[in-house]
Amino acid sequence: MASKPPAPFQFPREYSFPPFFTPQTNLTTHHAQQTKWAALVLAYCRHYRIFRLSISPSPATASSQSAPPHDTSDLFHNKQLNRRLSPAHIRSVIDFLRKDGRAEYLDPKGSGDVAYVYWQTPEEWAGIIESWVEGTAQKGSVLTVYELVEGENTRGSEFWGMDRDVLIKALGVLVKRGKAQIFGQEDSLGVKFF
């Protein structure tokens, strides 16, 4: 991606609707609320290219050295309205996303504070990478993960600057499809595309 998007995220109408931040008791309304929140989270993450979403208010996630975490505090906290979504409710939104395969907790037990948000699922990422490989005639060549994420060649492609873990998941999909092979050590992973 060439530059940080200058335009701030355009929140949907509901974002300024105070009851939107209260868990609804009516099941139908609650479902509608969840879907809207899910859509909002995905749109927001896509807009700011957020791969890891922190549930706790502090956005600084410890170990992720990739992509400078965008301040996500305004996603669940409408400062203008002074309304915020409670952590429990956020978690329920994430769970709602998870059911669709659009999110995943970092900690596989599902208790962590940070979750991957798949505004593109690993499968979709795999497709994107695959078409990039084909488009750039890189079949048979070996690339490191670092090259894929931060290399000069991939600058401008969709997956440039993406989260390493998500990328590895996407590559894993490719491996399963028999289109790639991963080898190497922890920090110097290499991928060979077929």
Binding site: F17, P18, P19, F21, T25, A39
Partner: peptide
């Protein structure tokens, strides 16, 4: 489903339901 609720520091308030406006299924 005509109204929806808002729990806040000001207490429980009820609003017209703008959450479930029909397009809620889009996702």
């Amino acid at each position: 489903g005509v109204l929806c609720r808002e729990e806040g520091i000001e207490g429980l308030k009820f609003w017209e339901n703008f959450i479930d406006t029909g397009e809620g299924k889009s996702y």
